[in-house]
Design a protein around this nucleic acid. Structure first.
Lengths: 223, 223
DNA sequence: ATTGACATACCGACCGGTATGAATGTAGGC
DNA sequence: GCCTACATTCATACCGGTCGGTATGTCAAT
């Protein structure tokens, strides 16, 4: 028992010592709140998200929540900044930087997304777009944060397309910025259509349409 | 004996039977409820729509509402069936039937939509898609109704494309059904992107991208 | 007298948010 | 090393307000 006490005490002390890190007790609680909030918002949207359900799923109480976040909106903003933004950045944006063949890269990312989160995406759509559709018209805080994500996504794709143009992979008669805007819109439209229909075949048909469009951007091959 | 009943009684009977007329006091109240409910749902979504706000805007009380509709869901379903479905049918579907040049027709409808409801559409998006994105994953009643609308929209566009193929206006190497699915997804994606950004230039860039894609479906002209 | 078409008043459930206090560390003086 | 003073980190209880829904009353038209 004594050993137990001292051991646990020391480990906690060391733990706290070496970590402003994310494995302190406080940070862990905060993490659980963020993840539970993300799931709740993903499932029901922000407005219909229930704090009590979030607390139940996070396994903490309301005191903990309002210690870490000042309001429901503050929690929602943190979900956008710390979960949605980073996951879009990691999954979609980073691979586009210095991609040898951006059209191939983007297509592969679509397949990868369908593989990894197919069922969830079919049922619930894209978390980023869901939140943008719900909150952009009615709250500037959400709109600015979400649009910042979309904006860097579009920028990354436009840059990739411009690079491919310069390397002679993509037709020179298309505008990279406009094309990037349309491609992301079409992508979100495809996910949304499949979600609306709740049918996998719609997702596939739509995805193929988009891939077909993307390949149409390549320089015409003679032969 | 039934025939012997007075003419007025019979006409009322028929009237009550069919509920065709819209100038009775009851039908007017119902209509006001439907329109106020549509506006509220369009602005806030179904889940966040407030019955008290609907009642205030309709100028009636809760008794009237629950006389005409059995629940909030029943009201929402009626909005889909009697407002959204008919407006999509009138605006987008009917013009596609026996259109001489469906690509031209569709493009013109996009311009017309931007003209007629530009500001509102920029701020709040497409009522049909909004509701589908919000409710399809979590309520079968909404999903079936909304998907029925999408389905006939897609069917009308696919038929129009097939007709254009047969008339030699559209390339024969594209699949009308898949193309229709993609075009509607892209359209909703464009509206959604503009709404998310709350920027008109995104709507224009995106619309031009879609129009460019549509024109790419035409048979290649020599010259 | 009965019925359709509402209006009014009210209900329990749940909402987001707060006030309070109890553990649980944590830094500084000795 | 130990005790005290303080700061974090939560748990509990509770708040006013709004939610969708219901029960009952009213009143004109049959």
């Amino acid at each position: 028992m004594i050993m137990n006490e001292s051991a646990s005490k020391r480990s906690k002390w060391v733990l706290h010592q070496c970590c402003i890190r994310s494995d302190s007790r406080s940070e862990k609680t905060r993490r659980q709140l963020l993840e539970a909030a993300f799931n709740e918002i993903y499932e029901y949207g922000f407005q219909a998200a229930s704090l009590s359900r979030i607390l139940k799923n996070a396994g903490v109480t309301k005191g903990a929540l309002y210690h870490h976040f000042s309001s429901k909106f503050d929690l929602g903003y943190a979900v956008v900044d710390e979960i949605i933004a980073t996951s879009i950045e990691d999954f979609w944006i980073k691979p586009l930087r210095d991609a040898e063949d951006p059209i191939e890269t983007f297509t592969q990312l679509m397949y990868k997304a369908a593989e990894e989160t197919g069922m969830e995406m079919l049922r619930l759509g894209c978390p980023l777009n869901n939140l943008a559709q719900e909150m952009s018209p009615i709250d500037a805080g959400f709109r600015e944060r979400l649009e910042r994500i979309f904006s860097s996504w579009r920028e990354a794709l436009a840059n990739a397309l411009r690079g491919a143009q310069e390397r002679g992979q993509v037709r020179k008669d298309i505008d990279p910025e406009q094309t990037a805007i349309f491609v992301l819109a079409a992508l979100e439209g495809c996910v949304g259509s499949a979600k609306a229909a709740q049918r996998m075949d719609v997702l596939y048909a739509c995805g193929n349409g988009l891939i077909h469009y993307l390949n149409g951007l390549r320089v015409v091959q003679e032969g």
